[in-house]
Structures are given as C-alpha cells and as structure tokens.
Design a protein around this nucleic acid. Structure first.
Lengths: 332, 332
DNA sequence: TTGTACGCGTTATCAC
DNA sequence: GTGATAACGCGTACAA
C-alpha cells in the first residue's frame, strides 16, 4: 500500500522513549497528568526524531479538523482578496486553516463544491457565493456543518448570517440625485454576478419606478478591457449619464472611456462604484462608491464561525450597512 | 468521545445494502470488479442515506489527501490574488483543494506555518513566501513533501522551482534610461518585502555603480496612503526623479502625489511599477511596469505540482522572464 | 465477484 | 502517573 514508509508515528516515539503511546499523546496535548521527567524525556525524543502529529489521524479520532472551508466564486477580485485577508488574520489567532472551494461563478461547480465541503470534513464553512441557493446551504446544514453565510439569509441550527445593506444606500443616493442632478441613470448589468447585484439592480429599478423616472440598463462583460472598449463605442453617441458599476475596475472602465472620449467627469459623466475598495481612492478621478470594509467582513465572518464552533452565545445575524462615500466621479 | 454521532459511514451503507463494506468501497472508487446489479444497489442506498466518504479516513488509509498547501505572505495583494486564481483553476481540473498558510511577512509565523504544513498532511506545498529560507524549505523537503518553490532556488528531490527574471529587465530599463534620460533614479525600499525585492534593489544599485551614476533610496511604508503623504512632503523640495516602486498601488501613490504637487508626469516625475498587474493600465496615467502574468505563474506552479505528484517527467526549473511594458508614466 | 481482516496514526476510556 | 485497548472511517491484500 505504502511503498515509502517514512512518517514518524507516535508509536515510534513511544518505543524510543520507553513509554506507551498513551503517554506520548498526553505530552503532545499538554495533558498535565504526566511526570515532569517523563515529559521532558518524551519531548526530547520527539525533537530528536522530528515527530509531527498527523492532523489526519487526529481529526479522525477527535472528529475535528482545524479546517474551515471557504466557498467563493473567485479568488481574483480585490474585494474577495480583502475578505480572505480578514479571514486569515482572524483564523490564525484561533488556530484554524482555510481551505478554498472556488465555484467560478458556475452552478455546476458550486454543487460539486458542496459535495467536496462535506467530504473534506471541515469544521465549518463560510459561504460567500451567489451561486449557492438556500437549498444547497440547507443541504450543507443538514450535514451538521456549522455555516456562516454571507449575503444570503438562511435560518437554521448552527448557521449564522452576514448581510450587506446596499439597498438603503443605493436608494438614498438615487433619490437625492433626483433632487439635484439631471442625468439619466444607467445600471451596468452583469451576467452571473449573483443575487447581491440583482438585489441592488432591483432597488435601482424600483427607485426609478417609484419616482416615475426613466432609466437605462447596459449589459456588460465582467472585464475592464471589454467594458472600456464598449463604452468608447457608447460615448460616441451618448454624451452624458450617471453610471452605476459593480466594482472599481468596471467603474474605472467607464470613467476612462468617458475621459478618453473627451467627456468631462463629473459634469458630463458620473460614475458610482457599488463595491468600493481602496482603488476607489487611488484611481483618478477618485471614484465615488458605496463602502463596506470587506476585510472587516471577513474577520467578522471568521469570528462568528469560531463562536459557532465554540458554542459561544452570539448574535446569529449581523448586518454591514454600506455608506456612500462621495468622491470626484459624482457631483453630489 | 463523540456525543453527536451522525455522519453516515461506509459501514451503514454496507449493512443497508446487504453487502460488505469492501464492496461499498469498490463502488465508491469505481473499482470495476463489481457486478452491475450490486453496484446499482449500493449506489442507490448511498444516495438514499446521503453518504459522503470521509476524506480524513480515506487520507489516513491511502496516505493521500487531495490537498495542497499554499504558503503566501498575505492574501491581500492583487498579484497574489491573481496567482491564487491561476492555482485554483488548475487545481480544480485535477481535483485538488488548496489550503492556505499565511505568514503575514513574519518569520515567526512562517516557521509556525512550516510546522502546520507538515502536520496538516497536504500532498504537496507551493511556497511563495520570502520569509522562508532554503533552510526551512529543506526541512519541508526532508519530510518528503513535494514542493514547488516560487522565487527561491532550491535543488532537492521532489522539489521544483519557478523563478522570476526581473534583474535582466531592470538592468536593461535602467541602462537604456541612462542613454536617453537625465533624471536621478530612486528605489523605493520596503522593509520585510523579501528576497525578490532585495535582489531587484541590488540589481538597481549595481547597475548604477557599474555606470558610475548616483542614485537614491527611499524607505517607505507598505501602504498607499502613507506613501502618498510621504511623497506629498518629498515633492515640496524635490521636483523631479525617476521612481521604482514595488507594485502598482505604491507606484500610484508616487504618481498621484506628483500630480497633486503640480508636477508633470513623465516630464518631471517618472514612475515604474516593478510587479505590474492589470491596474497598471487602469490607473491614469498608465503606469509603466515590468510584467509577469501571475495567473499564469500560479497555473504553472500548480501544474508542476501535479506533475511532481504524478511522478511525471518534467523540467524542475521554470523561469518567467519579465517584460518591460512602457506606458505613460515613463518617457522611454 | 464478494467478504474478512488488518492497517493507517491518533484520542480517549478504562484499568492498574 | 501510566499502560492496554477500543474506537474513528476507509482502503486493500488475501481468502473464499
């Protein structure tokens, strides 16, 4: 079965130090009912042999890995990287590792990842993925896997939720723009962008309908380059507008296209980035955006997860309300 | 030991379908020596019971997890996110999961992560971390863990390397600038930025020394905001210079500070981003940069890893040569 | 084709 | 304080 037998086991340590493996186990786990002399003796041979406990065997015995699954659509977006950053920081403190399950914005992959999360025996999973519906989340939940679900409301045992409050902010931005501004507003629609953006788009449409205003929707590709060239085309005939884009790089595509078409920002063209990151204030002109600190979100998610795992009393729902940060790409 | 006994095991599936667990195991692993009828029967009860094999137990039995450890300093940089993206794509094809080990640019953490990589029983590890020296890498290697080391030359059994060729490009950029340009060049030095940047800085210094030219070094913080305000200060007294920055956001800090100080880019101030990402061509003015596609690097690294694991013949060293992409932040 | 029995490396429950 | 020994869930020779 194993042609290369090399991993030092607790057994060999026991034999080498002349004790039973039970004692070695006690030493490893800092169980205090061990004589100081034998403890030192064992620790010495552990170091000498270079013994490292196997997380696999330990996990099998304790039914706990110190592993938390992270389900994300993609590792590439800046805001997801920010979130991962918050998670890793928090996880490290508590001694957890993160295992990545990437869905690539595909439903099929997402379903497959659900399977993998279950088999992989993680202690819990944090789900930040719009491909996964309540149904799948419930499936995970039915396997008793503690869950923190970001941006999806699920109520179940051992499930905590983090919600993003974008609707309120977007409505208020739009409504207050109605009072002062006069440009037509356009929403940049993205395929496979998930529920969050859909909800925001709905809020955008609803607000316009309620105010009996006209609006526009542009379908764009999830790519800076493509969006930039699309808008270079659009700005040949359209010379003004207020555009709402999913995130900074797409907002920048519109912005750059506008400027390169000789339009003025924000006099002719205004742009709002919905999920703003630090690039919103690095890019010129500075992009107005809705702000939620995703590193904070990641940290909070991980904290809720460890609370869940530690069965600590906690609020099972947390909401991050976004704030509108006016910068130079909008007038108001 | 376990108060909650709920995971469906191969045993229960066996009993429920009236076969032995060996047969169930064969069905799971698509071992073909199983009658079609029993196979179907077993598959049926597997579905009915919602059985999922335990990767833990399987790993213990086969001595293989389908897990690859990724050691990185940080999950937050765009270029690391890009690399992760390439890795996850490639890993998914081959059925591997990624487990993250983040060192936070700290030597202590890095050493701890080495321990964790060993205990965690990953099938292999990809190391993209400058805190880890040859010594630590060799330690990992001594535990027979297949390794792909990025940006660090290690020669050992089951170790593959990916190297970045920045020195050549940087020398050629500098030397050709000596011919045409006249500004003094400054290197933006970062603490804890690792060997890669140190090597590049050395190349920068050496090239100047060889040409008997003067140069400057600025120590900066690893933060856009701080660097921006530092340079707002600097540009009060200094009104020209050619600055080499670690990555896009730091280059942007210099650039924005220059512009906000009323200096012209690239006439007065020139900036080069060493590790360029897509933001180099989103930011305005477009930032000249040295380019290596880090998604490609990630994919290649993962591919080398799977080759290593599959014991496939391969080149154990691969070099990515960076190319200078002139954009608008430099004159030549 | 199918079943038995053992091993994987560790923890935990007993005794002593 | 320490040592057997039975789990943990699965793969796999070997036997049937």
């Amino acid at each position: 079965m194993k042609n290369i037998k090399d991993r030092v086991t607790i057994y060999e340590v026991a034999k080498a130090s002349g004790v039973s493996l039970a004692t070695v186990s006690r030493v490893i786990n800092n169980n205090d009912n061990v004589t100081e002399t034998t403890r030192i003796k064992v620790q010495e041979t552990i170091r000498r042999l270079g013994y490292k406990p196997s997380a696999l065997a330990r996990g099998l015995a304790t039914n706990r890995t110190t592993n938390i699954g992270i389900v994300i659509p993609n590792a590439n977006y800046v805001y997801i990287a920010n979130m991962l950053n918050g998670m890793t920081d928090e996880a490290k403190d508590k001694g957890y590792q993160l295992t990545l399950f990437v869905t690539n914005h595909s439903k099929d992959d997402a379903l497959q990842m659900v399977e993998k999360v279950i088999t992989s025996h993680v202690d819990g999973a944090i789900i930040f993925d719009d491909e996964l519906d309540v149904e799948e989340v419930n499936k995970l939940s039915s396997y008793k896997i503690p869950l923190v679900v970001i941006n999806n409301n699920v109520i179940a045992e051992r499930v905590a939720c983090i919600n993003f409050g974008y609707e309120h902010a977007i409505r208020s931005v739009i409504n207050s723009y109605f009072e002062k501004g006069d440009k037509k507003m356009y929403f940049l629609h993205l395929h496979h962008s998930g529920r969050l953006l859909q909800r925001i788009e709905k809020a955008f449409v609803d607000t316009h309908v309620e105010a009996m205003r006209g609006y526009g929707i542009y379908s764009i590709e999830d790519s800076y380059r493509q969006t930039y060239s699309d808008f270079m085309e659009i700005f040949k005939s359209t010379h003004s507008g207020y555009f709402l884009a999913h995130r900074d790089s797409l907002a920048a595509a519109v912005l750059n296209a506008a400027i390169d078409s000789g339009l003025r920002v924000p006099q002719d063209v205004e742009v709002l980035s919905i999920i703003g990151t630090k690039y919103a204030s690095i890019l010129r002109p500075h992009i107005s955006s809705l702000h939620i600190d995703l590193k904070e979100v990641g940290a909070k998610a991980m904290q809720m997860m460890t609370d869940l795992l530690g069965e600590i009393e906690m609020q099972h729902v947390h909401k991050f309300e976004s704030t509108f940060v006016k910068r130079d790409s909008t007038q108001y």
